[in-house]
Write a protein that binds this DNA or RNA. Structure first.
Lengths: 336, 336
DNA sequence: TATTTATGAAAAAACGTTTCCAAAAAAGAG
DNA sequence: CTCTTTTTTGGAAACGTTTTTTCATAAATA
């Protein structure tokens, strides 16, 4: 149980014959210290193996080098969040930051962290914007704690998000290229901007290819596997289409299950595409065509931007929309 | 940019007419303060809306209420880690702790946190034990920072892990029940204790059911999908078996792909089981029989135990092995 | 009644930084 | 060489707690 005897700034001061103040200035790269003095102190630091105590630093009004990352409660359902977090951590570590992970349900505890100034900033993955969110946002703004949204933009706070319109458009272009003439879109909840944007993109892309809009049908879902199943059932029990585009992969999976149960072959009888490029998509049979979200890029850019806001006391953060990529797999086939 | 004026212990002291020391004692439930005084102070705290500053607390030698959770570099491949983390966070939040997430590759930064006493404890998911790990473990022990392993036990440090032997045994019992008489085990890396344990469990279970051990075959893999594919290919190109048990789901998936390519029907021609009950297992066709790891339970117990070590200054942590559960799905069928 | 012992509360020291302010040293101007 | 300006440095306060020490009062013992 040996106590290795903490080396403090005091020790460095006495060893180098300077004052604590000067040593502090040296470690913080304050330019108003004579170069020779600085070098001398650096040597002492080296010899003693001194490392500044970050807690004391934080107390004295400095930074904590911790940021919070808030993910949705059910992030388990979307393993791509791991990519987001990994990217954030990569940037964070390079700059000496640590990340505190929080699910949305524990927002109260995040608010505590903010009030206590225990974090230098936040990255929030918000799928919708509640009153509580807005309260938190404005409080953070008042307290001067920077944050970045990586889900839905809100107010004019900084955000980094995926281009859902572009994704829908890419699917449309692909569908037209494959010769589909009758298309079913399975939507998410009406209030959910992602689903709305994807549909908007789909419409834009279809128009661009002179698709006859009367042959675009829409069934409502709620992002769940079951709702995808039911949407497919509602439509296909009395009708048929060349292709189905679901607003997310889980609904696409639901539709796939319906097709399988009813001997509708994919892609021979109907082509199918989803969105998110969820973990399981490539393992389905047939592997599912989907749109891959740029989660790594979002994480990287969000974190870089956040750090820049923290370190340069920038008030204004970025607004950025990153392109998504269509991943073509066997669930779509050219129409004969 | 209004500064809401921080309320400190000083304010509470003057408002209540007591000293900072007494207020501090009240917040920390020190019993040597007269109940009436305590109540009076509590009222002041209530009125002023005082919340102790955790950074100052930490500096003054107290706890930080932060713990680090270390996951493997490629945790992305194993989405069940999210369950582990969620369970840890649930317990943590209830007790007022925050979790700092770190991948194994950033262990240096974890060591910094330890040296600075910026965390009260750690939960480490370690798949193997390196020199660097052992160094960290012994340093933490010297510094009196509690930690718990949730992967491989090492030294006699506390751990919580899944029962791999029991899982293998359950598969064996199930296989015998289904009437399989010739079985292929696709192993993981030889050095990997999980795979070894699963095989050991398989052997135990088979013996218990008087299986003829000469009909147990083994092909080596390395946990990757490709290695599963190749293992299946090596064996089935010149032989056949009633059932295949892969040491993890990804290899089972690889085998499944081989079978599909070679028109070997699952489960009609061969039954298949994996391990981990990975996210995609239930979405395969056929859905894959697998062994589900008790990740939530591991997380809960690890965190509860860690907190108990932290708060009671317990030296000795727990050693615990939690049962795994066989999840039967359509990839296995009774042998005619 | 005088002396010791508990008990409750205040004052002060400690934790390790940063930063403000003033003093000292160096540099520049005349 | 003196006076002013600028640069560099040191002392001390501040950050908000916990903890140790000290002190006073009330209760208990002699």
């Amino acid at each position: 149980m040996e106590r290795p005897k903490k080396i403090t700034i005091e020790d460095v001061a006495s060893h180098s014959g300077c004052s604590k103040a000067t040593v502090s200035r040296v470690i913080n790269h304050d330019k108003r210290v004579r170069p020779e003095t600085a070098e001398h102190i650096m040597k002492s630091i080296e010899i003693l193996g001194y490392h500044p105590n970050t807690i004391a630093r934080a107390l004295s009004g400095g930074k904590t080098f911790e940021i919070a990352v808030v993910v949705p409660d059910n992030w388990k359902a979307q393993p791509y969040y791991i990519k987001l977090i990994d990217a954030i951590e990569d940037v964070a570590d390079a700059k000496g930051y640590h990340i505190i992970l929080k699910r949305r349900k524990y927002l109260d505890s995040v608010i505590d962290l903010v009030n206590q100034k225990r974090i230098d900033g936040l990255i929030i993955r918000n799928m919708q914007v509640t009153e509580q969110d807005l309260g938190l946002f404005s409080r953070m703004e008042r307290m001067g704690i920077p944050f970045i949204l990586t889900g839905q933009p809100a107010g004019d706070y900084p955000f980094v998000k995926a281009d859902n319109i572009g994704g829908g458009r890419a699917v449309a272009a692909f569908f037209c290229e494959m010769g589909y003439e009758k298309i079913l879109y399975i939507s998410g909840p009406e209030t959910h901007i992602d689903s709305v944007d994807r549909l908007a993109g789909l419409r834009i892309g279809l128009s661009e290819s002179r698709f006859n809009m009367e042959n675009l049908y829409i069934e409502a879902g709620d992002y769940s596997k079951e709702s995808g199943y039911n949407a497919a059932k509602r439509f296909f029990s009395s009708d048929k289409a060349d292709a189905v585009f679901a607003a997310n992969d889980r609904m696409a999976l639901g539709a796939l299950l319906y097709f399988r149960e009813n001997s509708i072959r994919v892609p021979e009888d109907v082509s199918l595409a989803g969105y998110d490029d969820n973990f399981f998509s490539e393992f389905l049979s047939p592997p599912l065509t989907s749109v891959k979200l740029p989660m790594s890029e979002i994480g990287t850019i969000a974190m870089e931007s956040l750090i820049s806001m923290i370190e340069n006391r920038e008030r204004k953060g970025i607004n950025m929309i990153l392109p998504s990529r269509l991943v073509k797999r066997d669930s779509c086939r050219i129409k004969a």
